[in-house]
Design a protein around this nucleic acid. Structure first.
Lengths: 150, 150
DNA sequence: TTGTATGTACTAATACTCTCATACATTGGG
DNA sequence: CCCAATGTATGAGAGTATTAGTACATACAA
């Protein structure tokens, strides 16, 4: 049964978090890709479907999908749907490095705005390996949660 | 032997950067602390003084100082001034680590959504090392000196 | 072709961020 | 006690970000 697989994507929104809805959606998709719940070719929920689920406007979901499309994370076809794209073909090595450099800069800057030094960040990353940690979202009711690794 | 320059702290603002003034001030103070131009007990410029220098409103400077105070980087006494804290008092090391872990997890997930592996990210960061800094060692020596002149 | 599912465009309402103007409160020295 | 220096409180204004309402466009299968 691939019932498990369906359960792994449970979007939730926290209105009190201060994080915009569309960004929460983006983050949850990134997490799902990061831990393998979403892989290339998978279809995302439709903008209307997810909008109804989350009780928000379809355009808000569309905005999240749009931003991901600009990044090349998903590709979208009007009338068909939005799908996780295959990143291995789309970018050259130079391009990839440029993007990674941008992400790194962005992250360092954000960490600094929280008062961390670059050294703080670097030494933390090499020591702690952050991805193994579990997440804090969801957990709103049923706890299937099969996918997150420890 | 060269006398060190006395101009320890020269705040500047870049209006075109898109970074809010109060954040630019925070960044510059953090940098000054991180490279030793500011140490525990040093007094920061007064909100009015710096505001005049930078041609902005005193409240904008105050906002920067406030945020630093919340983080425990400085402490403030009405009527007296704002000073670099003796130690970081407000947040525990555990708390700081928890926050950094969250930021890191988000960053890694985002990078992975672009198709980068965790190792891609780590090795990039270690190699590119935004700052190869080993010069924290007291280039200031006996330099407690006039951080600000009254 | 037609219908229904999909995403999209445009616009307006709302909420938030940043900065400033003005007035107020506290401290410490004379 | 005053006074001048310090930070603080409140609210207004402009600009931007976020979300929603409504109507439109495209794809695909019957």
């Amino acid at each position: 049964m691939d019932m498990e697989k369906e359960k792994t994507l449970a979007f939730t929104l926290d209105p009190k978090s201060g994080v915009p809805y569309y960004k929460q959606i983006i983050l949850q998709i990134e997490m799902a890709i990061s831990d393998g719940r979403l892989v290339s070719g998978d279809q995302l929920p439709t903008v209307r479907g997810l909008a109804v689920d989350l009780r928000i406007n379809p355009n808000t979901v569309a905005r999240a999908y749009n931003e991901l499309e600009i990044r090349g994370v998903v590709n979208t076809q009007q009338g068909t749907g939005t799908f996780i794209s295959d990143k291995t073909i789309s970018m050259t090595e130079v391009e990839r490095e440029r993007i990674l450099a941008g992400l790194a800069r962005e992250f360092i800057a954000k960490a600094q705005s929280y008062g961390f030094s670059k050294d703080d960040v670097l030494s933390f990353l090499v020591e702690e390996d952050p991805v193994k940690r579990n997440n804090q979202e969801v957990s709103d009711g049923d706890k299937k949660s099969t996918v997150f690794t420890h």
